[in-house]
Design a protein around this nucleic acid. Structure first.
Length: 744
DNA sequence: CTGAGGCCTATTTTT
DNA sequence: TAGGCCTCAG
C-alpha cells in the first residue's frame, strides 16, 4: 500500500500519531479532532507499512458500537476483512480469554454471564437466605459496592475488615455472593475483567504467550478506563508491547462509575518514554462554539492542557434563552425545531441534550403538542427487556440445565402454579445437595418432597424443557428461538396482556427471532471470532454464541424510526456524537451542575467536563436554555442560571428575546401595583389558547379575583388550564372552561 | 395468581 | 408528581 495514502490529508498531530515510531504514545484527542480516523489509520500503518501481523494487534474500546465502527472503518481502509485482529470491548476480549482458558481461570466450561439485573436478583436472594435486612442494606447499594470493589481489583478477602457494622455487612454479602458465583459458575461484568486479570497474574506462561503474540495495543477513550481495566492493559503490555492510548482528559465523564481520570494523567509515568501527541485541530465546530468550550473547561484544575482550535469560520453567536419555567423552555425548543425544519434542514440534525432523564418528559409533551417527531435515546435496552430476558432464559436452559439463574427466572413464567414455596423447597434441597436447581427438581420429584399439585407442575416444567430441546441440533437458530418462545407459552402469555404493552412485547419477541435469523447469516460474527485459536470454539453451537453475544451487548435502546426526528438524549449519551444544531437545556444551578455533584471539587469538575462535552457536540449552532422555575418531584423550584453559562464570555452569547414569548415572569420583579403588560404586545401563540378569546400576556377579568394577566396555558380542549397573575389575588391556575375569563 | 393500594424515592450508564 | 416496588386481600 502506498504510504502517502495513509498520511495524506492528515494534519501534523494526526500524522505524528499514525506514523509514530516511539514505543508508547499518549494521544490527547480533543473533541472532533479526528480521533477514530487516527486510530484506524494507525492500525493500517502498522499492518501495511511496518508489516506487523494482524494477529499481533489488539484494539480495545468501551462499547460494542465503537468496536463495530472501528472494525468497519478498518475494513474500509484496508479493503480486506480485518481477520485476526483483536478488536473489541474490554469485556468482549476478556470474555474471549476466559472462554479459551476456562480451566486455568477456575471456571466451568460453560460459565454464565450475569447481567446487572441477574446480579441484583442473586444479591437479594442471598440476603434473604441469610436474614439480612434489605431495608437497612439496600440491595442496590450492595450491588454498587461489589461492583466498585471489583473495579478496583479487590475480592471480598481483600476488603479490609471494618469496625463499622454497615461496612461489615457489605463485606459479608460480597463474600457470600462471591462464593455463590464461584459455586454456580456465574460471572458478572466486573468479574470478567477481574478474573481475566487474575488469569494472567496466576499463569505466567499464559501471560507470556499473549505477550509474545501481541506487539501493539491501542486503547480508545482511555480517559474512561477504570483501575482494573488499566491494570489489565498494563499486565498484558509487560515490557515489550507498545501501547497507544487515545483519549481526552477533558471528556472524562464517567468517574462516578469507576473511571479513573488519573489513568490518563499517569500514563506517561507508567509507560516510560511515552510520547505525548496532541490533536487540537477541531474539524467540527465553529470558532464561537469552540471558544465557549475552551473558556468553560479552562476553569478546571490539573488538566493535561489542550486548546482546541479551528480554521473554520466564526459562526453564529451562542443563543441564550431564559425561560420562565420548564414548559416555556420546552415550548421554545419546539419552536426552534420548527424553525429549523422550515429552514429546510433535517430535524435529525438537531439534538436536545439535558442533564437528567426526567427532563425529557416536558420536552416530549411539547413536541407531541406541536406534532414534532422526536426520538428519545436511552431507556431500556433490547436485551434487557423482561420478555426478551425470559425468552433468553429458556434458551439458556436448553443449552445448560444447570443454569440456575435462568431456571429461577422462568420456572413460573408464564404462570404454571409453581409458587415461591415450591421454588424454595427446590432451592433448599439444591443447597443441601450442592446441586443445581434442575437436579434438585428431579430429586424432589423422586423423593416425593413436593406436595402433589406442585409436583405435577414441576414435572410439567421439566417435561416442557426436555421437549423443547428435542432436535435442536437439526434446527436453525431462528427456528430454535421461534419454537421456544411458542412452546414455552411466552407468546400466549403476552397475548393475554391487555393494552399496548402486550403487543409491544410480542413485537419484541418477533424481533428476537429476527435477530437470530441475522445471526445465522453470519454477518454478526466479528471476523476474528474464527481465528488461530479456535480449539475451544469448536463445540460451541450457534446458540451458545448467540447467547453470549446477547449477554455482552445490550442492544440498541429502540428500533430506528423512519421519520425524520429531533434527537433527545442525556449529555452522557451524546458523547462521541455531533449535530449541526444543539440545544443544551436546563442549565441551572442544582440541575446542571447537578446538586448531587456540586459540593465536591471533583464532582463539579466532572460536571464541567460534561458541559464541555455538550458544547462541543455542536457543529454550527448552539443554543443554551435555562428556566427560572422548574417543577421537579412535584415541587416548584427556583434556580439561578448555571455557572457554566457565566463561564462563557459575554461576547460569544446573544440573549434571545422573542417578540412572541413572555420571557420573564415580570411579577417577580415588580409589585402588583406596578405590573403592566409586557412591552411587546403582539403575542402570536394561538395554538395554546385555541378556544378561548385571550392570549398570553392579555389582561383579563375574573368575577372573583378581579383583573390579571395571562401567564401561560397548559393542556388542551376541556382540560385547558390557564395561569393568571391577578393584581389582587396573586397567581392562580384556572380551568379555562369554568373560569369565564373575559378579555379586557 | 392478580390487582389495588401504600410507601418510598427521585443523576449520569456500559458491559 | 410519578413510577417502581412491595404487601396484602381476595
Amino acid at each position: 500500500m502506498d504510504i502517502s495514502l495513509l498520511l495524506d490529508n492528515l494534519n501534523d498531530g494526526q500524522r505524528n500519531a499514525v506514523a509514530a515510531s516511539s514505543k508508547h504514545q499518549l494521544v490527547l484527542a480533543g473533541a472532533g479532532s479526528g480521533k477514530t480516523r487516527v486510530l484506524v489509520q494507525r492500525i493500517a500503518w502498522l499492518l501495511n507499512v511496518e508489516n506487523v501481523s494482524p494477529f499481533a494487534v489488539m484494539a480495545v474500546t468501551f462499547t460494542n458500537k465503537a468496536a463495530k465502527e472501528m472494525r468497519a472503518r478498518l475494513e474500509e481502509v484496508l479493503n480486506v476483512p480485518a481477520n485476526g485482529l483483536w478488536v473489541g470491548t474490554f469485556h468482549g476480549l476478556a470474555h474471549r480469554l476466559l472462554k479459551q482458558h476456562w480451566r486455568e481461570a477456575r471456571l466451568p466450561q460453560h460459565f454464565q454471564i450475569l447481567d446487572s439485573d441477574d446480579q441484583l436478583r442473586l444479591i437479594k436472594r442471598l440476603m434473604k437466605a441469610h436474614n439480612i435486612d434489605d431495608s437497612r442494606y439496600p440491595p442496590k447499594q450492595i450491588q454498587w459496592f461489589i461492583n466498585g470493589q471489583k473495579d478496583e481489583g479487590r475480592r471480598a478477602a481483600h476488603v479490609i475488615p471494618s469496625a463499622d457494622p454497615f461496612q461489615e455487612t457489605l463485606r459479608t454479602v460480597y463474600a457470600l455472593y462471591e462464593e455463590n458465583c464461584q459455586q454456580n459458575g456465574l460471572v458478572d461484568f466486573g468479574e470478567i475483567l477481574l478474573r481475566s486479570h487474575e488469569l494472567w497474574l496466576e499463569n505466567p506462561d499464559l501471560l507470556q504467550h499473549y505477550q509474545q503474540r501481541f506487539r501493539h495495543i491501542l486503547v480508545d477513550e482511555f480517559q474512561d478506563t477504570n483501575n482494573i481495566q488499566y491494570a489489565w492493559i498494563r499486565i498484558l503490555a509487560g515490557q515489550n508491547i507498545s501501547v497507544m492510548a487515545v483519549g481526552d482528559d477533558d471528556q472524562s465523564i464517567y468517574g462516578w462509575r469507576g473511571a479513573n481520570i488519573d489513568n490518563i494523567r499517569n500514563f506517561q509515568h507508567d509507560f516510560p518514554g511515552a510520547e505525548l501527541i496532541k490533536l487540537e485541530q477541531n474539524y467540527r465546530s465553529t470558532a464561537n462554539i469552540l471558544a465557549a468550550a475552551n473558556a468553560v473547561i479552562e476553569n478546571n484544575q490539573g488538566r493535561l492542557g489542550k486548546n482546541l482550535m479551528t480554521q473554520g469560520e466564526e459562526g453564529e453567536p451562542i443563543s441564550l434563552y431564559s425561560a420562565f419555567n420548564e414548559q416555556d423552555e420546552a415550548r421554545y425548543i419546539a419552536d426552534l425545531v420548527d424553525e429549523w425544519s422550515r429552514g429546510g434542514r433535517l430535524r435529525a440534525e438537531m439534538a436536545v441534550l439535558y442533564r437528567s432523564n426526567a427532563q425529557s418528559r416536558t420536552l416530549e409533551e411539547a413536541f407531541l403538542r406541536s406534532g414534532i417527531p422526536y426520538r428519545i435515546y436511552g431507556g431500556q435496552r433490547f436485551y434487557e427487556r423482561l420478555e426478551i430476558k425470559n425468552a433468553l432464559s429458556y434458551l439458556r436452559l436448553l443449552l445448560n440445565r444447570q443454569d440456575d439463574a435462568a431456571m429461577e427466572r422462568v420456572i413460573n413464567v408464564p404462570a404454571r402454579a409453581i409458587g415461591e414455596k415450591t421454588v424454595e423447597i427446590l432451592r433448599s434441597h439444591a443447597r443441601e445437595q450442592g446441586c443445581s436447581l434442575w437436579q434438585s427438581a428431579h430429586e424432589a420429584l423422586s423423593l416425593g418432597l413436593l406436595p402433589k399439585r406442585a409436583g405435577t407442575a414441576v414435572q410439567g416444567f421439566i417435561d416442557l424443557i426436555d421437549e423443547m430441546s428435542v432436535g435442536i441440533h437439526e434446527l436453525k437458530l431462528h427456528e430454535i428461538v421461534d419454537n421456544s418462545i411458542t412452546q414455552s407459552g411466552l407468546i400466549e402469555h403476552h397475548k393475554k396482556e391487555k393494552g399496548e404493552k402486550g403487543q409491544a412485547r410480542l413485537d419484541n419477541l418477533e424481533e428476537l427471532i429476527n435477530a437470530a435469523r441475522q445471526f445465522e447469516s453470519g454477518d454478526y460474527l466479528p471476523a476474528d471470532e474464527v481465528d488461530d485459536e479456535t480449539e475451544e470454539n469448536s463445540g460451541q453451537t450457534d446458540l451458545a454464541i448467540f447467547l453470549d453475544n446477547a449477554a455482552l451487548d445490550a442492544g440498541e435502546g429502540q428500533a430506528d424510526e423512519y421519520e425524520d426526528a429531533v434527537q433527545l438524549m442525556t449529555l452522557h449519551s451524546a458523547k462521541g456524537l455531533e449535530f449541526p444544531q444543539v440545544v443544551l437545556a436546563g442549565l441551572e444551578e442544582g440541575l446542571f451542575p447537578h446538586k448531587m455533584s456540586m459540593d465536591e471539587a471533583e464532582g463539579l469538575e466532572e460536571e464541567r467536563r460534561l458541559a464541555y462535552v455538550g458544547i462541543t457536540r455542536a457543529m454550527e449552532k448552539l443554543i443554551i436554555t435555562h428556566a427560572e422555575s422548574r417543577r421537579l418531584h412535584g415541587q416548584e423550584n427556583f434556580s439561578t442560571p448555571s455557572r457554566f453559562i457565566r463561564e462563557i464570555p459575554d461576547e460569544l452569547i446573544q440573549e434571545v428575546r422573542l417578540k412572541n414569548t413572555v420571557s420573564r415572569p415580570l411579577m417577580a420583579k415588580h409589585n402588583r401595583g406596578g405590573y403592566d403588560t409586557p412591552a411587546q404586545p403582539d403575542f402570536v401563540k394561538q395554538e395554546q389558547s385555541a378556544g378561548v378569546p385571550y392570549d398570553l400576556g392579555n389582561r383579563v377579568y375574573h368575577e372573583m379575583f378581579g383583573e390579571g394577566t395571562v401567564l401561560q396555558f397548559e393542556g388542551q380542549g376541556p382540560g385547558l388550564r390557564v395561569q393568571v397573575f391577578f393584581d389582587d389575588a396573586g397567581q392562580k391556575w384556572l380551568v379555562a372552561n369554568f373560569a369565564k375569563l373575559e378579555k379586557i
